[in-house]
Each structure stands twice: as structure tokens, then as C-alpha cells.
């Protein structure tokens, strides 16, 4: 069964534990600048929103790569960057509509979320379950459940 990262911004407190866990897991460093998931603060609204790659089915980054350095991981559904193939041309960073694949000046390669190979570090680090890793075929389950709960209150 494939799983997806599922983000509930209303539960996020902006602590950046996910960014720390991501950078440590993938780059061996506590460093939000090297995180593949980013938390955005909307100060005037008092809101926080984590954002990262949605692993598009028809991934434009993968389509755009001229050297086939981005490949589908069939076990997790993620689109992974092959570091030894990537030439750092950055075409994928232009192709991605969401800005979630970025160039790393230290390595000369691009970086994106690869779901940590099926065990995302951000999910384990999140203290409020704002980021969860759930059945990719039922990402709406939580919302369905909320509506279902309303249907049994007697108002329906």
C-alpha cells in the first residue's frame, strides 16, 4: 500500500522540528536551510503551514530532466533524484509548479523530498500530528470522518 504525506496546517505550531529532522536524516545536519520540507509563517493571520513535494503522478520535474536523473521509486511512489546522474542543470526547479525541488549549492545537485525511503523523519518529529503519513488512496479519510461524525449527531 502506498502512503502519502498529509499536512494539516491548522495543527502546526511553527516549531520547525520537521525541518530539523529532515535535514538531519538526509544531510546529517540540524539546518532548516537544508530541509526538504518548509514551514511558512503567515504572521498577520497567525497561521503556519508546512509544505513539501506532493510526489505528482505525472511529475513535471521528472518529465523535464534531460538526463533522466529523477526516477519513480515503485515501493514508495516518491520521485527520487539520482545524485550520480544529476548534472545540476536546474531545469526541474523551473518545471516544478510548486517550488518543492531546489538546487543545493554545496553539492551541485538538486534536492527534493523522497519520503525518506518510506519512513519520513518529519512525521516522527512533528509533535502535533500536523504531518502524518497515511494511505495514499484515502487522504480524505479524516475529513470524511468529520462529516460522518456530524451525520450521527441527530441533525442529519
Amino acid at each position: 500500500m502506498l502512503r502519502s504525506l498529509h499536512i494539516s496546517p491548522s495543527k502546526c505550531t511553527g516549531c520547525l522540528q520537521c525541518e530539523m529532522a529532515c535535514s538531519f536524516e538526509n544531510e546529517g545536519v540540524f539546518n532548516p536551510s537544508k530541509s526538504r520540507i518548509k514551514v511558512f509563517t503567515f504572521h498577520d493571520e497567525g497561521r503556519f503551514a508546512p509544505y513539501t513535494c506532493t510526489q505528482c503522478a505525472e511529475a513535471w520535474c521528472m518529465q523535464a530532466c534531460p538526463v533522466d536523473a529523477i526516477v519513480l521509486n515503485r515501493e514508495t511512489g516518491s520521485k527520487d533524484v539520482l545524485n550520480d546522474v544529476c548534472v545540476g542543470c536546474k531545469v526541474c526547479t523551473i518545471a516544478c509548479p510548486f517550488g518543492t525541488i531546489n538546487y543545493n549549492t554545496d553539492t551541485g545537485k538538486v534536492v527534493k523530498c523522497d519520503l525518506c525511503g518510506g519512513d519520513p523523519a518529519c512525521v516522527k518529529a512533528c509533535p502535533t500530528e500536523a504531518i502524518t503519513y497515511i494511505d495514499a488512496d484515502a487522504t480524505g479519510l479524516d475529513r470524511m470522518r468529520q462529516w460522518a461524525a456530524q451525520s450521527i449527531t441527530g441533525n442529519a
Binding site: 505550531t13 516549531c15 520547525l16 497567525g46 502535533t128
Partner: peptide, 12 residues
């Protein structure tokens, strides 16, 4: 509006 965390804080 909401509670909020400082850097790395899981209390918020």
C-alpha cells in the same frame, strides 16, 4: 488565534 512555538519547541 492560535498557540505558537519557538524554534524546536514541542510545548508551544
Amino acid at each position: 488565534v492560535t498557540n505558537a512555538a519557538c524554534f524546536s519547541c514541542t510545548i508551544a
